[in-house]
Computed example of a mutant assay.
Amino acid sequence: MADEERWTAAHAMTNFDDLLERVVTTCKPVFIVGERNSAVLISMEDWDSIQEKLRPRSPPDL
């Protein structure tokens, strides 16, 4: 993704409130890159949407 936003782990920790606000208001994930590990921060709304899509569906007659 060419327009993905990346933050260092140190910057994310120092500015976590700003990072959280940004993720929630833009509805775009932010990639957090550390020396040993990396992660992606997404909004709760996006997480719920992903979970809903992954949840197995019961047949209509059950």
Rank of each mutant, 00 (worst) to 15 (best):
T14K: 03
V40F: 07
C27V: 03
K28V: 06
V40I: 14
V30Y: 07
R36Q: 11
T8V: 01
V33E: 04
D17A: 10
V24L: 06
P60H: 14
R22A: 11
T26Q: 11
A2L: 12
K28I: 03
D17S: 07
A10N: 00
S38Y: 04
Q51Y: 06
E35N: 13
P56Q: 07
M13I: 02
G34T: 01
D46V: 12
I42D: 07
L19C: 13
S38W: 02
Q51F: 06
Q51S: 07
R22H: 14
F31W: 12
D17V: 04
T14S: 07
N37S: 13
L20S: 10
S43G: 07
M1K: 05
Q51K: 11
W47C: 14
K28Q: 14
A9H: 00
W47G: 07
G34A: 03
F31I: 09
C27E: 08
L41Q: 08
A9E: 02
S49Q: 10
E35L: 11
A12N: 01
G34E: 05
M13N: 03
A39E: 12
R57K: 14
M44Q: 05
R22C: 08
K53I: 05
M1T: 06
T25W: 02
R57T: 10
M1N: 06
R22P: 00
A39M: 15
D48A: 13
M44R: 04
R57Y: 04
V30S: 09
A10I: 01
D3H: 10
V40K: 03
V33I: 08
F16P: 02
A39F: 13
I42L: 13
M13Q: 01
N37D: 13
R36Y: 11
D17H: 02
W47V: 05
F16I: 11
N37R: 11
S58T: 12
R6G: 02
V33R: 00
I42F: 08
D17G: 04
R22W: 09
S58R: 15
D18E: 10
F16L: 12
P29Q: 09
M13V: 03
S58Y: 11
D48G: 03
I50Y: 14
D61V: 05
M13W: 00
E52R: 03
K53V: 06
T26F: 05
E52M: 10
D3Q: 09
R6T: 06
P29I: 07
H11G: 01
E52P: 00
G34N: 04
L20R: 09
L20Y: 10
I32W: 00
K28E: 13
V23Q: 08
A2R: 11
A12V: 01
C27P: 04
M44C: 05
M13H: 01
E35K: 14
V40T: 12
R55Q: 15
V33L: 02
P56M: 06
D46H: 15
V33F: 01
N15C: 04
E21Y: 07
W47M: 15
M13P: 00
S38C: 12
A9P: 02
V33H: 00
E35M: 06
A12F: 01
A2S: 14
P56S: 08
D18V: 01
